[in-house]
Design a protein around this nucleic acid. Structure first.
Lengths: 246, 246
DNA sequence: GAAAAGATGTGATTGATGTCACATCTCTTC
DNA sequence: GAAGAGATGTGACATCAATCACATCTTTTC
């Protein structure tokens, strides 16, 4: 955790100690990165924090809310369920990601359920508070627009991948995406801790669990990846994976 | 057939008469709906207008741009091409829709090619101009955020539909979507002029052209829709279609 | 560390969709 | 309004992923 040029934090304690800084989730949130220091401490007082254990539901489907939620620790999935009960995972949220931007202009129903994948801490900021912040700090609006734009771009990419007929390309794209977000480069390849089980991967990619198993098995046979337990993965030949992803 | 030219208000006439106001694309654009009258005329002087004939390329793939583009008339498709040449249509833009929001913070490559489906008029506003507008009119930022949020919601819906296994659901959803956007309610059902050919529908939905033909034929046999020439469609039993879409 | 619970791997089978080839229909153009 | 170009419909076939059923492997729990 990098802290540079940080001044004092009178509200919390009388000096900028590590403990207090860690409590300020605003420092970890890219959305607020463009704001001046004083604004961050100001925001911090308006934020409501909550913790959820792994597996619990953070936002039940159909909740009417007027808050924007930011993940300040852990991972969560956003998903919808179709009439026959099939789950479709839309996003994997990690530290720093936010959702609920649709409530910014008016309270409304959340379009997806959010569930904790690991123990998760969230910060919630009310519509009113965020709107006031935007009016006082227009650069926050620009940052928000940029973040939304990035997300749009990712969804556009996802739609192209899902629209294409090749399941292999979808899987390769997903693995590359996870490698980039959660991977650690080592001498023998990229080590990734997958955020989802095979079942979860299946819901995310939109195919059957058995198909994921078979396809990953195939990739392992071809020496492209190595499975290390249920959530572990080592990517051996990332260039080959990139080729498969097209 | 491409005529460029900047239109400033005085060039049209010397006062704000209704006829001239109608020519100001700023009045037709939802994105600007929250702005005061003076701002609209101010924006109008900074906009560059261009026309494109049906079938022409408005934004070639890979264009580096720093403008936001608004469709002020006609329809266009945004599409990507995969390595094997398959087209994936991401959006159908109609009057009032905009794209290029990714260029708002820095000039960048367009992530998709935009092609005119009909004769199309566009308005382009530079990054600098739009940024200045946002700073002077923060409500514009909120409107932009809302529009982006709406688009995100639509893409999320699309991903759920594409992730689900049922092709029938995808087709029904698409038809309902088109009915809502382009349909006219009459006594014998909803008459829709499709913006795309069967080939286009196939690229949009992500399936083979032949499959679309067969599925639409099936829907017609079941008395749910009636095909009227290549682009015409009458939706007879919209409730059944809704059931199929789940 | 052993047992139970849960997740994953795998074979056989089925069905739906892509592909190819070509007939037929629509729309455009002159 | 006739001809041609382009778009669409349709049959046959191959292919690939979903499903079902069950074995096997990991992880968790006590």
């Amino acid at each position: 955790m990098t802290l540079k040029g940080v001044i004092s934090l009178p509200q919390i304690c009388d000096r900028a100690c590590q403990t207090c800084l860690d409590k300020l989730c605003t420092h970890k949130i890219p959305l607020f990165s463009a704001l001046p220091f004083e604004a961050l401490t100001e925001i911090a007082t308006q934020i409501e924090h909550t913790e959820y254990p792994a597996g619990s539901v953070i936002i039940p489907l159909g909740t009417v809310s007027s808050s924007v939620t930011i993940i300040s620790g852990g991972q969560a999935k956003a998903c919808r369920y179709s009439a026959d009960g099939r789950e479709q995972i839309l996003y994997i949220f990690s530290e720093g990601d936010f959702f609920g931007e649709q409530h910014l202009l008016s309270a409304s129903e959340t379009p997806y359920q959010v569930e904790a994948l690991t123990d998760t801490r969230i910060c919630q900021l009310s519509r009113q508070a965020l709107n006031q912040l935007i009016i006082r700090h227009p650069e926050l609006a620009l940052q928000l627009i940029q973040d939304l734009t990035l997300r749009l771009g990712r969804l556009e990419q996802a739609i192209q991948t899902m629209g294409g007929r090749s399941i292999d390309a979808r899987i390769s794209t997903t693995l590359l995406d996870f490698a980039e977000r959660y991977g650690r480069v080592r001498s023998d390849g990229i080590h990734v801790t997958l955020p989802l089980s095979r079942e979860g991967l299946a819901s995310y990619i939109g195919i059957a669990r058995e198909t994921i198993s078979r396809k990953l098995g195939q990739l392992e046979n071809d020496g492209i990846i190595e499975s290390r337990g249920h959530r572990g993965l080592r990517i051996i030949r990332i260039d080959t994976l990139r080729t498969l992803a097209e």
